[in-house]
Computed example of a mutant assay.
Amino acid sequence: MGRATGAMLGLAIGDALGKRTEFLTMQEIGLLSADWRQLPLPKKAKVTDDTQMTLALARALRAALAEGPLVPLRLELPLREEFVDWWRSPDNDRAPGMTCLRSCFRLSTGRPWQDASDLGSKGCGANMRVAPLGLVRELTDQQVSGASQLQSGLTHGHPTALAASELTAFTVRWLAQGVEPTELPARLRAHAVEQRTRYDEFWLGDLSTRDHFGSPEEFIARGWDECLRTLDRLDAALAAGELDADPCERTGAGWVAEEAFATALLCFLLLPDDPVAAVRRAAVSSGDSDSLACLAGAFAGARHGEGAWPADWVDRIEYREELLAFGALWD
């Protein structure tokens, strides 16, 4: 079925669809396509920093696992190198987020990653790139949890960024394992409640001490509480079921991590059996369209596999060969 391949292709396809509509109003997007269900993939299907940073994480994860079981230092070292290489690359010209740029500069100086992290930022750069951690089947739940927070923390250290990254990774993981989409909201809520005061010092080290706000448990609880409130909004949006409404009006524009997660998941759950429509719905939105469609594509691809995507779309997506290589590795 190729669920990992489907997720890797889907996130890049969604990214390329949303790249065209990001920063446009709904009226302006309507000039591109009068019906959101018909939004075309550009002939040159270029992606954004979302896919570039996803591939950076994928390469670091592959390198880490080649050395043995996944542990913090084994992931942090190649991930730091990949992020700094991305920051320096001439191909890093796709409107990257300022938090990622500033944090990667600080990482390049060799300082501890906790000092390079931006604890004030919960931007969607934290979780737009996390899908690979949900696709490696040999990882334990504890490794997925810790590593998803660690990869966020290298740039976005806000507790909500950490929590939203973990929820995003587990959504991909559960869908790839065959969990039914209708089960996801309750599973996610239960997971958030269970994790609410669990600060994982093994993976995060002393990150919370940079915050100067209460105990480590209080630090991390702030993030899970924000995510739980966003899950409330997701439940209300699913109950309303307004397929033709701008999804950003229900669960947020997606510039921050918990909203990117919830709005992308909303688009997928409204159209769980139509992956192409799900990424189009996410791309035709008033918010951070590329990140929303990127995540919706990862969810839909993990659910439906590589057959979810039109062959002509796959043929022209940027970074196609590398995306397929990682899909084959993890399938």
Rank of each mutant, 00 (worst) to 15 (best):
A277G: 07
P40F: 11
D244E: 14
C267E: 00
H191G: 12
E28P: 00
T5Q: 07
V314E: 06
P90M: 07
A34I: 03
F299A: 01
L55G: 11
K46T: 14
E166F: 07
R316H: 10
D91C: 05
A236C: 12
L228R: 12
G10V: 01
L9D: 10
T251I: 05
P69K: 10
D115K: 13
R80V: 09
S286R: 02
D331A: 05
S215R: 13
D312P: 09
V172M: 04
A253G: 14
L11K: 01
A161T: 06
H156A: 12
E76K: 07
V284L: 07
P181W: 03
L184M: 12
F219N: 00
S89Y: 04
L270D: 00
T155V: 10
D211M: 02
M98T: 09
P275I: 02
S33K: 11
D35P: 09
C124T: 12
Q27L: 11
R62H: 14
S291G: 08
W174V: 08
A34T: 11
Q195P: 05
A237H: 02
T21P: 07
P272T: 05
T230R: 15
F213P: 01
T182Y: 04
F105N: 15
L9G: 09
C124L: 08
G153R: 05
G123I: 11
G214L: 06
E22G: 08
T51I: 13
L39D: 08
A45F: 11
A260Y: 02
D49M: 04
D315I: 06
D91R: 14
S148V: 03
A116F: 08
G297H: 00
A190C: 11
G68K: 07
H158F: 04
F326N: 08
W113S: 06
S285G: 06
N127T: 06
N92P: 11
S291Q: 04
A34F: 07
E67S: 14
P272K: 08
A293I: 00
P132E: 11
S117L: 09
A278M: 02
T209A: 11
A237S: 05
A236V: 05
L57F: 12
L77N: 08
A58D: 10
L17Y: 00
P185S: 03
L150F: 08
T54P: 06
G178Y: 05
R250L: 15
G287Q: 03
A169Y: 07
A311V: 12
P42W: 04
I13K: 05
H304T: 01
S108W: 04
V193E: 15
E183I: 09
